[in-house]
Design a protein around this nucleic acid. Structure first.
Lengths: 233, 233
DNA sequence: AATTTCATGTAATTCGTTACATGATTCC
DNA sequence: GGAATCATGTAACGAATTACATGAAATT
């Protein structure tokens, strides 16, 4: 019962699996860390957290403020170390929550290939088993190929009667899809050749795979611009 | 009043501007002809049509069946030529509807740069004035550049702490955006150099611009596969 | 002292879907 | 005559947003 959205629930559990957080922080990570994630609002997030708690997947803890500064008498009320502080609820995954998340991770349904679901799943591939990763990647690919088929068909059918702009829009749309298919091909390829069945424990890696090419994801370089600025406008 | 969605209303008016249609057909065109348009369901479309009628922008006409076949006594009830036929309501744009659409076309707000709105607007660039086209393209571009900024920032901030997959997802996302920016650059460029202020009358063109290169959209070739098949699964 | 950013929540509303209900027409 | 597709609609529900309301903490 209470068929909560899927995608948000999934992402919240996934993020909380890595470390406990409070809502505000959670939302930011939802919008940044994860690739595509659209900006969920608080009006969505908080009620969702509530139901996750109700389901026994999360517990609320009194907020121990992240990096509590020296606080030598400065400010209004230094109070009793970290006791009387209102609000700032930190959510932590329970054992059942963890279990539930694992189950979500290992499941794949036709939804898993859809745009947003796919992105969410991909974002947690780090804790997904190899076999499931493959299923998701391949499912996504065939979903896109289906879509391409339709686009091509409709293009062929209507080509003559459309103005340049509509045509250009379709063309660009198709190219985007084709591009994603190529991306998936690369990923699938490198999944096949990669041998590591790695399975989480979030504090591994940072120097994961010193060999340049084989076994990991396909290599792409990216200009390293240190560019500190704002986040979600 | 009755702040109807925008995007669906806009698209419906735009499609009907070209020619009258009934709901079923309309929906198909929504999902195919226009580039990106997500599949609206009937449960969305029909009520929308109703309110557009209520606003005086559309009128319902008894359906003259598209290509009515000889019908020489065959079938159940040939009836009185095309009189007693139930349903099949054809919607036609009224003068006010046309006016309203023109106004929507010439307006631009911050919404116009968002993904779906942008696609919808672009799909009707054929009947949009040059100046407005420019505004929309440039608005979209700066919207995307903003987005890129944020992505870069968040990448720089979190790079070390993320696993390979999350990173790869972000990288791919950024590349997609960068690609669209390049596309927009091309379009803007060719808008600048193109001289035709063309403004609709849908029955022009089909051989619009016999010169290969200058003035129109940037040229891209595309394999012409005649591939007749189904539409919306 | 004032402003900004952090932080949590709720109520009303919007947008859109699913599932259902119905029936005509065409194809085999 | 039975299946598929065309065609129109409605009611119940779902997901998420906006606008509102509140207040603590940090920055300037």
């Amino acid at each position: 019962m209470s068929r909560r959205s899927g995608i948000l629930e999934f992402a919240v559990l996934g993020l909380l699996r890595e470390s406990p957080m409070h809502g505000y922080e959670l939302r930011k990570r939802l919008n940044t860390s994860l690739g595509i994630f659209r900006a969920f609002s608080y009006g969505t997030l908080y009620p969702c957290l509530k139901t996750l708690v109700a389901n026994g997947w999360l517990i609320e803890e009194p907020g121990s403020v992240p990096a509590l500064p020296p606080a030598t008498g400065r400010g209004v009320a230094p109070a009793s170390s970290l006791a009387g502080r209102r609000a700032k609820i930190v959510y932590r995954l329970t054992a059942e929550g963890k279990e539930h998340f694992e189950e979500l991770l290992s499941h794949t349904g036709p939804d898993s290939w859809e745009d947003e679901h796919f992105a969410a799943r991909f974002a947690f591939f780090g804790q997904t088993e190899r076999e499931v990763r493959m299923r998701v990647l391949e499912g996504r690919r065939s979903r896109l190929e289906e879509r391409l088929e339709k686009m091509r068909a409709s293009l062929a059918r209507t080509r003559e009667r459309l103005d340049d702009y509509t045509l250009e829009l379709q063309r660009h749309g198709m190219e985007s899809v084709e591009r994603e298919v190529r991306w998936l091909n690369e990923l699938i390829e490198s999944e096949r050749s990669g041998r590591d069945q790695r399975r989480s424990s979030p504090e591994s890696s940072t120097q994961h795979d010193t060999s340049g090419e084989t076994g990991g994801l396909p290599r792409h370089r990216e200009d390293t611009r240190p560019d500190p600025s704002d986040d979600t406008k």
